[in-house]
Amino acid sequence: MERREALRLMGAASVFSVLSSDLFAATLRAQLAADKGSALRTLSAAQNEIVVAMSEVMIPATDSPGAKAAKVNEFIDLILTEWATEEERKIFLEGLAEADRKTNALFGHGFAAASAKEQAAIVQAFDEELAVSRNEKLPKQVRSWELTLLLPFFEQMRRLTLVGYYTSPIGQERELKVEIIPGALHGCVPAEPEVKR
C-alpha cells in the first residue's frame, strides 16, 4: 500500500472504524518497513538486533555457520507476522524487552550492545527459568499435534531459533547434511565417523 493511500484510509473515519487494530498495526508496520527498505515486517530495527544476537548465542558460528548467517531473524519475523496470533506475538516482543531490561539491570546497557559473555549470561538465565517452568509441568506432553507459540518467551525463542536454523539451507545442507533421496534402507548400520567440515 502506498503511504499516501494508507494515510487517506486513516483519515477517513468510516473506514478507520472498520479496520481492526491488527490490520491497522500491520499497515503501519508495512509502512515503516517499506520506508526503511527492510524486509522485516514485525520486528523493529532494535528488536531485530536482539533477535539476531540472541539466536547467534544459541546457535553460534563454529566450524559451520550459525543462526545469524542462516537468517533465523527473518524466519522469526515471518512467523511473528503471518503465523503467530496477536497474543503470541505480544509475548515474544515483551520477551525481547525483558531481555533488554535484564541486561540493563546487570550490565548497564541493552542486550544487543552487550559483550558475548554478558549475552551468554542472560541467555543462561532465560534457559534456567524455562527448565524450572518445564519441570513444573510434568508429566511432559507427548505427541501433541497442535503446534502453538502460546508459550513463555524463551520457549518461543528456542523453538523458532532451532526450527529457523535447522530448516534453513545452511542447517539442512551444511550442518545436518540431509540427503533428500537416500536411495536405500539399512536398518542398523555403523554411524559414519564424523567428518571435518
Binding site: I59, T62, D127, L130, L176
Partner: peptide, 22 residues
Amino acid sequence: GWERGIHESGFGASFKSSLRKP
C-alpha cells in the same frame, strides 16, 4: 533428530555440536 533440542536445555557451541549427531 535435532528437534529434541526444542525440549532440552542448553545453548551455544556444545549444544549445537550435540544436535549435529542423532
